[in-house]
Design a protein around this nucleic acid. Structure first.
Lengths: 349, 349
DNA sequence: TTGAAAGCGCTAACAT
DNA sequence: ATGTTAGCGCTTTCAA
């Protein structure tokens, strides 16, 4: 079932069929309707591979997303799509599973679809120039940046938050509320990724306040999923470590952590405050509402597209944009315990 | 940057390059390493469109998913992929956005990738034979079925739960707990889809228990998202309608509903019980844990693949499999109010 | 073991 | 307005 079949059945040439299919103006009404009729009758559907192969540079931008179920991504994807369309381009979305290589996927997509640029959503923090060379077109890392890699700054663009600084901010917020014994729930201390960066911010905030980080207060879940976060929090609680506040590196994990605290008979925030980073939908519906630093997903998508389009259209080179989160006060953070000497805790101005 | 460039740079013909790239045996070590070297140096990445165009029937099965962020789907996707691989096929995942037509997308995918069959995840309940004809290959509706369409039973396969019966079950569970005034939170009463089916089950359960459904107890959110669910619940509460239990057609909406109840000073389950259907991850972490009917996502994915593979391999025709949910008791359902005459409520045995 | 050449399905000149 | 034809990048006969 090809365009040729349609042509024969309609008594016209393949070019006429092609013209009809692509809404070209120079086709007689008679031919057009005859072709359409055949298309319907034969249930003809064009082969996109063949189209992609032959069509000249379609103004398309790719979006490679790793991690299908990440709720944080949906908002970004929406924004990216909207912005790409607004800029007069077409978005080609490509989801990959955790096992796959986003650079490889991006490169293949770029070739097949003749992309002008690629946005990577949820990739690695440690690319080498060698790895990214395969892409061959401008790309922007959206929601992450090359913190652990060796990419040259002007070889790629990025739009992200400063993970370390934001974690610092979250923990400092807890300290300002009077907390001294602050635990952290993370994926891993050394994942060469988001978890490690936020851990650094946590440590730094403590140090700057004159509090010595205590490894007994670090709970490593090993992954980002809720079950692991729940378990990690339980282990922390069973360890008898003392803390009045918990910084969780991701909202979804924080939701599970709050449940674990509750199941152990602890009240949030009376017995333990909880703060996180991300701002996914669901964390607005916990009881109490999770206090969190909301990532600007809309702006993130928007800026990613802008950076890319500017490069594509020759308006300058690679940029690295750092966005700030917004604190969403919830009910999950309360005041810390009252000390006789309040100056136990030093707070940076 | 094509295979031709690689061939020239390597001093061999394109066929040799192709052989190397496809791991054919009849290539000399010398040629192979020379080609690989060039590939690396040139950062050559093959054009998949060209490959797809020319390659004979690759044993691939498509999975078209509508609704990127649906947490209910992630489990199904995982199961489907695993099962497709286990059956010796390759999965081709294609995510589409809400605006797109899954049948169109499926048909195009089928042509481009020469698929043997397609699994539709999250499609419409009202296809007509005319619409599905374009697919041209066996397909199975996963997690839904043609309840409102006019498809011939043996023209497609489906694996789903009986939405109406499961809703009936959920509501009957509430009735058995002693509830009479049971509200429902749904997308729409007539969406020709999941919401309508579950609404029917709700009404039927009430009727069978001798309770007249009351439209004042029906809250339509208009969509499935949490914000709308929260608002819908608030409207219901402001309406002063009296109810001691709430049936929500989806877990995610129930999470928002519980929050709304809490924000209005109502305790779950003391003042209002809540039950839902789905069993997504997050509903296990609400406080109290949401009582829900868990959809068998793993089995759903598995059965979908089996049905399809059986057809592909000539082991019989289209099947329609109905799976049952499993009740996960949570803390969100409590006993209903005590009546002087308990036989006010008739319960079917 | 290798190369030449014939397409895969489609679009876009270039004719007519 | 319509048909003819040359590729797009790749794999795969078929010869050598």
């Amino acid at each position: 079932m090809t365009i040729k079949d349609v042509a024969e059945r309609s008594g016209v040439s393949v070019s006429t069929v092609s013209r009809v299919l692509n809404n070209h103006p120079d086709v007689s009404e008679a031919a057009r309707s005859r072709v359409m009729e055949t298309v319907r009758k034969l249930h003809y559907v064009p082969n996109n591979s063949a189209r992609d192969l032959v069509r000249p540079q379609t103004a398309a931008i790719g979006l490679v997303v790793r991690g299908a179920g990440n709720p944080f991504f949906s908002g970004v994807i929406r924004a990216v799509e909207q912005e790409i369309n607004a800029a007069g381009y077409t978005m080609v979305l490509h989801q990959i599973r955790s096992g796959e290589d986003e650079l490889q996927a991006g490169a293949e997509l770029a070739r097949s679809k003749r992309l002008l640029g690629v946005i990577l959503l949820g990739g690695c923090f440690d690319y080498t120039p060698e790895q990214t060379a395969a892409l061959g077109i401008p790309f922007v890392c959206c929601s992450f940046t090359n913190s652990f890699g060796s990419l040259n700054k002007d070889a790629y663009s990025s739009v992200s938050i400063d993970d370390q600084a934001e974690a610092y901010r979250a923990v400092t917020f807890l300290i300002r509320q009077g907390h001294k014994n602050i635990a952290i729930l993370l994926d891993s201390k050394q994942d060469h990724s988001i978890s490690e960066l936020r851990y650094r911010g946590y440590c730094q905030a403590l140090l700057d306040a004159g509090i010595a980080p205590d490894t007994a207060l670090v709970a490593e879940a090993g992954t980002f999923d809720m079950a692991a976060a729940y378990e990690g929090t339980c282990r922390l609680l069973r360890s008898q470590a003392e803390f009045t506040a918990l910084f969780v590196i991701a909202d979804s994990m924080a939701v599970a952590a709050m449940k674990a605290l509750h199941d152990h008979g602890l009240r949030v925030p009376e017995d333990c405050s909880v703060i996180a980073i991300d701002g996914i939908d669901m964390s607005a519906y916990t009881i109490p509402t999770l206090t969190t630093l909301i990532q600007p997903v809309g702006a993130m998508g928007k800026e990613s597209v802008h950076s890319l389009v500017d490069i594509i259209e020759g308006r300058g080179g690679n940029r690295h944009i750092q966005l700030r989160t917004a604190l969403r006060p919830g009910g999950s953070v309360g005041a810390g315990p009252v000390f006789t000497s309040a100056n136990d805790v030093k707070i940076k101005p």
